[in-house]
Amino acid sequence: MIRRERTILLVEDNPDDVELTKRAFAKSNIANEMIVARDGEEALDYLFGTGTYTGRDNMMMPQVVLLDLKLPKIDGLGVLRRMRADERTKRVPVVILTTSTEEKDVVTSYDLGANSYVRKPVDFSQFADAARQLGLYWLLLNEPPPSKGKP
């Protein structure tokens, strides 16, 4: 049985962006625990309880995954593909949070089953605003998929 944690999984290799995202969430009073994965492999390890996360209860899934596209080892689209192909993660909300607005990135992300696509703005107040809205929507408003699934 899949259960959901109140955590946010942030998959982001740029430490500055990690810091700015954390700050933006904190400023918006979003206190959910944030797990940070620095590359695609680490993200998948976290989700599936493998590698450095061996032993993590992999029936516990984050409330939302914020996924950058350009990542070391396995890129964002690769992570998304793996998530959507696995029973345990195929319904976990994934928000692409990236710098790219290349049409092919947007289209491919949606094709692979992303729930949302958000561009990181340069302007920090916009960035903070985007983070706040993301938090409000995905952590409070959005009705998550029912907590069931094959183990």
Binding site: D17, L20, K120, P121, V122, D123, F124, F127
Partner: peptide
């Protein structure tokens, strides 16, 4: 855009 976001942020 990434370094710019850091500078602005």
């Amino acid at each position: 855009r990434a370094p710019l976001r850091s500078i602005a942020g």
